[in-house]
């Protein structure tokens, strides 16, 4: 039978992934910002799974509320006209494949590094213990880190290039 926390975790993980993709692929800045709010609230819900309610409150009120309003104000007050991101189909396909590749690697990496005994993730009452176990396993599964690191580096490089491109476009 499906456990409640299993169910919640899977739904929440899917929610985070899809709203994260929404941030990347939204056509308008404000749509991206709304998706970002969803992502941040989804990440906050993970804290509930490890019994850290205070962290949930801080994450929701600071990031879901305060920072989101700041982003929205910045987004509306700094642009003269409506910002549209334009994708042609090939660009979209390449970036989608790239994101899929990174997600697949992350999945393999995380599935290796989470506590091996099934059920540990939600039977422990102590969030700290869970985190320590997680990082210990990351340390041990170092060949996983070797696989994932180049992709993370590539992702940051792509983000840097994209921001440079956007900055140049504004000058024109």
């Amino acid at each position: 039978m499906v456990e409640f926390f299993d169910f919640f975790f899977v739904i929440n993980a899917l929610f985070i992934v899809f709203s994260g993709l929404g941030v990347l692929f939204a056509k308008r800045v404000m749509q991206s910002a709304l998706s970002l709010i969803f992502t941040l609230v989804g990440v906050a819900n993970v804290f509930l799974l490890v019994n850290s309610e205070y962290l949930w409150v801080i994450q929701v009120s600071v990031y879901g509320g305060g920072i989101a309003v700041l982003l929205l104000f910045a987004g509306r007050l700094t642009s003269n006209e409506e910002d549209h991101f334009s994708f042609d189909r090939s660009d979209f396909l390449i970036s989608f494949l790239f994101v899929l590749l990174i997600l697949a690697n992350l999945f393999v990496f995380i599935s290796k590094s989470i506590p091996s005994q099934r059920g540990n993730i939600y039977t422990t009452d102590n969030g700290q213990l869970l985190l320590r176990q997680f990082f210990t396993n990351i340390w041990q599964a170092n060949q996983g880190l070797g696989v994932i690191l180049p992709f993370i580096a590539l992702m940051f490089l792509a983000a840097l290039l994209a921001s440079v491109k956007l900055a140049i476009k504004e000058d024109e």
């Binding site: 910002a33 205070y54 009120s61 879901g64 509320g65 309003v69 929205l72 509306r76």
Partner: peptide, 24 residues
């Protein structure tokens, strides 16, 4: 819950960005 009133404040803090998005 142990967070009690903080929970209500956290939930209320989602309202301003949602209203702003609705207006936009």
């Amino acid at each position: 819950m142990s967070i009690g009133i903080l929970y209500v404040f956290a939930i209320f803090s989602i309202f301003p960005p949602a209203m702003f998005i609705g207006g936009w």
